[in-house]
């Protein structure tokens, strides 16, 4: 079996990453994913761990405006990129500061257990930035990077279309 011992694990690396417009100096293991650093080092737990391998999309963030699975990116390689998390999309106060997409989610009943919700909101933010008024088929295709196990996606698609019409 493995004879790994703790002293053999890699040395930390340092990096500067920019999250929601603020710059952070981080020290992390070279193998630390962006997701781990967001959640553990920066305390931004709105970005969720689901599958760890780039399928479920609970960890979706924006990297320079593009949707990304933060579980599949090494944090140390994110230097010079602008990261946006759900905290940067939804704001951090009650209703008044909620974004258009978050509001549409509440109105359409697109939130159930809610664990996948931040990832979907962020992914739809990226979708609407490049395609402000998408068709239902375009929404469904774009959301191939996110899985919801509660809703059958129906209300989420309705929410995305509703938000799209408003931008």
């Amino acid at each position: 079996m493995t004879s790994m011992d703790v002293s053999a694990t890699s040395m930390d690396v340092s990096a500067t990453i920019s999250v929601n417009g603020r710059s952070h100096e981080i020290d992390c293991q070279p193998g630390a994913t962006l997701l781990e650093v967001l959640r553990t080092s920066l305390g931004l737990t709105g970005t969720k761990f689901g599958c760890g391998i780039g399928y479920c999309g609970a960890c979706t963030v924006l990297v320079d405006g593009a949707a990304a699975h933060s579980c599949c990116l090494l944090a140390a390689t994110m230097q010079g990129r602008e990261i946006t998390t759900i905290e940067g999309v939804s704001g951090d106060g009650p209703d008044p500061s909620l974004g258009v997409i978050s509001e549409a989610f509440l109105e359409a009943g697109a939130v159930q257990c809610g664990y996948c919700t931040p990832g979907f909101v962020v992914a739809i933010e990226a979708l609407l930035a490049e395609n402000p008024d998408p068709s239902e088929a375009e929404v469904r295709r774009y959301l191939t990077g996110n899985i919801c196990r509660c809703s059958g996606f129906a209300a989420i698609v309705r929410a995305a279309l509703r938000a799209g019409g408003r931008r």
């Binding site: 737990t45 509440l106 257990c113 809610g114 919700t117």
Partner: peptide, 19 residues
């Protein structure tokens, strides 16, 4: 009616077990 726990979930502020 929008769910009573909707805002916390949609904004990412709700605390799950994994959090």
């Amino acid at each position: 009616v929008a769910r009573v726990d909707g805002w916390a979930k949609v904004s990412g502020t709700a605390t799950y077990l994994t959090d």
